[in-house]
């Protein structure tokens, strides 16, 4: 790129959050870019070890259970333990939740507590509006600490919902550590795999807009209930 192209370059840079046209110093990145990269990397690492605040859980009326992973180090090394729940959590859920709800909402920190902190306040009420528009009722929502996507099967076995929605923090990248996904499954039970699930990903301020994602989920859920299926066989 030469100087005459500055305007075009600016336009390209505006079109993507990716690191393009950052310049160089000799054969190396500029100091500013290098520091930014290290800063973003540090933020990503911090995010993985972060916790969702009790204030947020209280605000949205969510009680909290743990996965079988126990602590973060084990959680990172043993993905399988993030998919199952210990007996204490199972009892807690069984006791406190409405059974066989139409729609069960579950929230988990996954690999980014930040993502939940940043997006849940916007996505969750938009989802509730959307469910109300479609005339759908919700069970008792709760939070799973150190959960993996597969924990929706375990929860499905306990509560037998028709549809489950799991909001979970995505693995942080260098562009944002605030990205969240919503996984959906019709009649989640043991043995369900990714091909049975739907996902709306990249939910954050600079990606899929949180309020619109919440609104869209209601439509997806209504469609899943109508076709009695989810995943790759759902017709959109």
């Amino acid at each position: 790129m030469t100087l005459q192209h500055t305007e075009e370059l600016e336009q390209l840079k505006r079109s993507t959050p990716a690191r393009i046209g950052t310049g160089r110093a000799g054969s190396r990145p500029t100091t500013r870019e290098l520091l930014k990269l290290r800063c973003d990397h540090a933020a990503a690492v911090d995010t993985v070890y972060g916790r969702v605040s009790q204030a947020l859980l209280d605000e949205l009326g969510l009680f909290s259970v743990e996965s079988s992973a126990g602590d973060k180090e084990i959680y990172l090394r043993r993905p399988d333990l993030g998919r199952v729940l210990p007996e204490s959590s199972i009892q807690n859920i069984r006791l406190r939740c409405i059974h066989e709800p139409k729609v069960q909402v579950v929230i988990s920190d996954g690999l980014s507590a930040n993502a939940i902190e940043h997006n849940l306040r916007d996505v969750y009420p938009a989802l509730l509006d959307s469910l109300q528009v479609h005339g759908l009722t919700c069970g008792t929502p709760f939070f799973v600490q150190n959960g993996r996507v597969g924990c929706m099967n375990a929860i499905g076995d306990i509560l037998q919902p028709e549809v489950i929605v799991l909001f979970i923090g995505e693995r942080p990248g260098l562009l944002t550590s605030h990205s969240m996904s919503a996984y959906l499954c019709y009649k989640p039970r043991s043995g369900m795999t990714d091909s049975n699930r739907m996902v709306v990903s990249n939910i954050h301020q600079g990606g899929t807009p949180p309020v619109e994602a919440g609104a869209h989920l209601g439509t997806l859920i209504a469609r899943m209930l109508k076709q009695k299926i989810s995943g790759v066989e759902l017709l959109l």
Partner: peptide, 14 residues
């Protein structure tokens, strides 16, 4: 102008 129509419409409906 932004991607927000469905959330807005749902909220007005509710």
């Amino acid at each position: 102008e932004d991607d927000a129509a469905k959330a807005m419409g749902n909220c007005i409906h509710v």
